[in-house]
């Protein structure tokens, strides 16, 4: 009985502090003149009675590992990507090969394989990310659209697979409408791992009238 008791106490002593984390609910990636800008929607909730509210932090860098590292440097807690559900990429980013990006995210332990990737049409991904004050509004929009079939259902693992298979993929596209609200903008078509064109509803046969 002594031995289990000692073991129990020793194990208890190992109890560590829960590390302070900054949970990210969505990410936006834009191209800048000398690299990229990554904006994270960090969730803040100060007490049980408050509602979760987003805060936006941006970092610049030359590649995704560098961007994530720079972003974690300016966050109050550890960058926590496990609850990130959406990655927005701007048109300029999508026009480059997105395969390394997809591969890197797939191999990151923290990132969910079900992360949804969307292309932002006519504007920056950061602007679109910051347009909504509600946490997870974007992921709910994409989930609903995928279920209804109005936007492609392309989580990260599927994007990586199709890009590896033949370099072609389709991703949901979003844009900010005239009222400043996020709205579906058809489908972004990728060929040779790069954005090739956009298709709206009528072109893929699901729209009403052109």
């Amino acid at each position: 009985m002594k031995l289990p008791g000692i073991l129990l106490l020793l194990t208890l002593l190992l109890c560590g502090c829960a590390r302070e984390v900054s949970p990210v609910s969505a990410l936006a990636l834009d191209r800048t003149d000398d690299g990229y800008r990554l904006t994270a929607e960090v969730v803040r909730q100060d007490s049980l009675d408050d509602a979760a509210s987003p805060a936006y932090l941006s970092a610049t860098g030359r590649d995704l590992p560098g961007l994530l590292s720079n972003l974690s440097n300016i966050l109050p807690g550890e960058l926590y990507l496990s609850h990130a559900q959406v990655l927005l990429i701007s048109e300029t980013v999508a026009e480059e090969s997105i395969l390394p990006l997809a591969d890197y995210l797939c191999t990151e332990n923290d990132v969910r394989l079900s992360l949804r990737v969307a292309v932002v049409r006519d504007g920056t991904a950061t602007d679109l990310l910051q347009s909504d004050d509600e946490v997870y509004a974007l992921s709910e929009l994409l989930d609903r659209a995928a279920q209804e079939g109005t936007l492609p259902d392309m989580p990260l693992y599927r994007v990586s697979e199709v890009l590896h298979a033949d370099g072609t993929a389709i991703l949901p596209a979003l844009y900010l409408d005239e009222f400043g609200q996020t709205a579906p903008a058809g489908t972004a078509v990728f060929a040779n791992e790069r954005l090739s064109c956009f298709l709206d509803g009528s072109e893929i046969g699901g729209g009403s009238d052109a």
């Binding site: 797939c106 394989l113 079900s114 693992y157 599927r158 990586s160 697979e161 199709v162 590896h164 298979a165």
Partner: peptide, 19 residues
């Protein structure tokens, strides 16, 4: 996951269970 995505992952059966 498909074979390509699975090849990227160190423990593909484990990662697939996360879905």
């Amino acid at each position: 996951l498909g074979t390509h995505t699975a090849a990227l992952l160190p423990y593909p059966n484990f990662s697939a269970a996360g879905l």
